[in-house]
Structure formats: structure tokens, C-alpha cells
Design a protein around this nucleic acid. Structure first.
Lengths: 217, 217
DNA sequence: GTGTGAAGTAGGGAAAACCCCATTGTAATT
DNA sequence: AATTACAATGGGGTTTTCCCTACTTCACAC
């Protein structure tokens, strides 16, 4: 069986050296290249057939986020595992959106790296426990935010119907046609919606609806 | 040290029996109660001081999602670990939003359950690898969806300024005052925005902006 | 230097949205 | 049976929005 080919991207040579040593202790991997920043990585990736990239996030010139985005644009099948020193919310989200397959702390145990390499090589994902906790925490925050705002006013059937059509972008006339009501009636229902939501025109009502997630994207 | 008190909620007695046996093999846990559906669980939770709930999702009468929501409303400090037979997207999201601390497959290894109990008891989270992969996959889908929609038109400075104010709910008059321009000018910029975005009134423009995430909540 | 094109600035007039007010129907309360 | 409450339905008239058209400026090209 061929060895799993790995590229290291990190601006600290000492870390790269240490990490390479660590990886070499696994018989099934091979470090085929190294880069000290995003630009260097992008220029060497063309003629290297790597299986997995270990990508640091904080780097001079071109950081891990942009480097990953650009690399994945050119080679969508690349498998990137992000490496970070600290837990950092902002980067986590950005890297996930960039499309990395894994996200780990540099302080992870040797066994974790082994597990991550195997899982990602086989097409899966790997995230450190700490990362998962962070993600879950974010979800919890979302939930609490939503709860807090859930003192939503109660709408009548017609109002809900009208609100939904409004949020689809329907004008009064179109809503009237869709519901077989007169424009005047629609206007009245909207008026009630304004009052209940504390808004004063359609635009504000739509914004309200989006913010309170009354409507789905 | 006191044992970790656990309640099992699952509609299959055989599973509860097997799971209780499994848990009893851990010296540090104690199964203090069982329920066969959400309603039963809600009625017994009042006088039980449980540390962790293992909650099945598919159950008759009251399913795991609603049971968890209601239980957490009454006792926000409850720690619930969701159990599921298959990977199911819909429920995953609902359970996370309900605020569970863990999510596992019933087919998990014994060591996984041990790890999950300890982590959640200590205030952390636990999610099976498969669940994490699923979550990560969802993020990737989000990313791709966003990318596809990223052929956004280019706006001029004024247009961006006006759009931002529109999305704050400002009427033409207010925008004019805020920018020291005439209403007519604002109208023209909006007109350009309509054309560039393929919309035809302010409401549609706002919806467009939200859907394309031009504006942040 | 004289087009050419894009951004920014408006006016006039039609259309839509909005506010105040009125009527009907229905269900719960007394 | 009368009263109250409120959803649902609209009209009249004002305000806001929107479309069509036009002028200025500025940069860049020929």
C-alpha cells in the first residue's frame, strides 16, 4: 500500500520539524513537502500530489483561511486539516466555510493525529473534541438568542397567510389576487401586523420577520 | 464520590434492559429511573434528581425532541444525551436546537458511552464521530450553496450605502436625511439597485439582500 | 480637445402603500 | 337575549414609492 502523502504548511520551522518527526513515526505516512506560508503553499501545490494538507491558520503573507479557499478553488478534492494553537471562534467558522475536512489543536495527542489522518484519508472528517464543544456551544448560543426573542406576538390565520406572502415579495395587489380578497383588506391585515410587531411599513415588517426567523430562507 | 445518576428514556424495553446492563458495568453510574416515552419521562422528572438523561428520539406519544424541549424549559440545567438508531438530519438539528448536550448512535461502542457520560457530567458535550461528520457535511452544503449564489452584482459606493440603510428599515426620506441627499436621488440609487439585483421594489430588494447575506443580522 | 460612458444628482407624474374609519360575522360572556 | 371582543372585510384620501426623463461631473480614450 502506498503511503499517505502529506504537506505541512506552517510559518514556524521548529513546529514543522517537530511535526514532521511526529508524522514520520507513523509507518503509513510520508511528508512530501513543506511551506512556510500560504503563497509558498499555493505555488508548490501544482506539481505535488498530496493526500492531506496540515494547514496552520495564523501565517504571514497569506493566512490559512485564504490559502485554503484558493487551494480548494483550484483543487476541490484537496483534503485540508486546519491546525490552530488556540481555540478561535472566528477562524473556526471561516475555515469550515472554506471547506476543510478537519480542525485540530496543535496540542493534540499523537493518537489524535493518527486518527485524524486515517479518517480524513478515508473521506471522513476529524475535529478535536474541543472544536466540537465550541461548535455545540455556538448552537446553544443561537438557541438561547432565539428563545429570548420568542415572545412573538400571536397572529391570526389571515395575518400569517399575508405575512408569508409578503415575505415572498408579493405586493398588495398580488396578495389580494392570491387570496381572492380586496387590496383594502390586505392593507388592513398588514396594518394589524405592523401594530403587533411594532413596525410601520412593509420593509420593516420583512426585516422583523427575518430577524425573528418567522420565515425560512 | 456519589454515583452519576442516569435516567433512560426509550420505548423499547429490550433496549432499556440492555442499555441498563451496559451502564451498570460502569462502577460510577447508577440508573435511577426509566421511561418508555416523553410523557412518562416528563411526569417522573419532577421528583428525580438526575445528572444525565439518555433520550431516544423516535418514541410514541411524545417524541424525544418535544420531551427534551419541555424538560429543558422546566429544568434548564438538565443534561440530555440524544440517542438515535440512524443518522437523521432533521432530528439532529431539532435536538441540537432543543439544547441537548450530546448526540450518539445507539450502536456506539461501550467506551464511547463511558466517555460521553464523563464529558457531559463534567459540563462538556459529546457527539459521535458520525454526528460530527454529518454536521460538517451540512456546513459544506451551506458553503456550496453560498458559493453558487456568489455571482453578486457589483454596487457603487452610494448604492451600497443606500442598501445598508434600506436594510435597517429606513424609508427614502430618512435615507435622504441621513445622507444629505434629496429623496429623488435616493430613489434613483434604489432604482439602480433594483435593476442590478433583478428586483422591482424595496421589499424584494430587502429579501434579496437577506437571502444573499449581503447584510448581517 | 472632444467623445463616451458611468456615477451622482434631481423633477413630474403614475402607482402603490399607508392611515383613519366603518360594517359584518362569530364566538364567548353575562 | 344582550353585550363584549375580535377577526375579517372594505372605502376615502394622504403619503410614499417608483418609473421615465434630464443635467452635471469626472475619468479615460481616441
Amino acid at each position: 500500500m502506498d503511503k499517505i502523502r502529506i504537506i505541512l504548511v506552517d510559518d514556524h520551522k521548529i513546529f514543522r520539524d517537530g511535526f514532521r518527526m511526529l508524522l514520520q513515526s507513523f509507518s503509513f505516512v510520508e511528508v512530501i513537502a513543506e511551506a512556510s506560508n500560504g503563497n509558498e503553499f499555493l505555488s508548490l501545490i501544482t506539481d505535488q500530489q498530496a493526500d492531506i494538507i496540515f494547514m496552520d491558520i495564523n501565517m504571514p503573507q497569506l493566512d490559512g483561511v485564504e490559502a485554503s479557499q484558493k487551494a480548494l478553488e483550484m483543487y476541490p478534492d484537496l483534503k485540508i486539516i486546519a491546525l490552530t494553537t488556540f481555540l478561535d471562534d472566528d477562524y473556526l467558522e471561516q475555515m469550515l466555510m472554506a471547506g476543510v475536512e478537519g480542525y485540530m489543536l496543535k496540542s493534540a495527542e499523537i493518537e489524535e493525529f493518527e486518527k485524524a489522518i486515517v479518517k480524513v484519508y478515508e473521506g471522513g472528517n476529524y475535529f478535536s473534541d474541543e472544536i466540537v464543544s465550541l461548535l455545540s456551544g455556538k448552537l446553544n448560543m443561537l438557541r438561547k438568542k432565539k428563545e429570548k426573542k420568542d415572545n412573538l406576538p400571536e397572529f391570526t390565520e389571515r395575518e400569517k397567510e399575508v405575512l408569508e406572502l409578503i415575505c415572498k415579495g408579493y405586493a398588495n395587489k398580488q396578495i389580494a389576487e392570491a387570496t381572492f380578497l380586496s387590496i383594502k383588506t390586505i392593507e388592513k391585515h398588514k396594518s394589524s401586523l405592523f401594530q403587533k410587531t411594532g413596525t410601520f411599513n412593509t420593509v420593516n415588517l420583512v426585516i422583523y420577520a427575518f430577524k425573528h426567523q418567522i420565515i425560512k430562507f
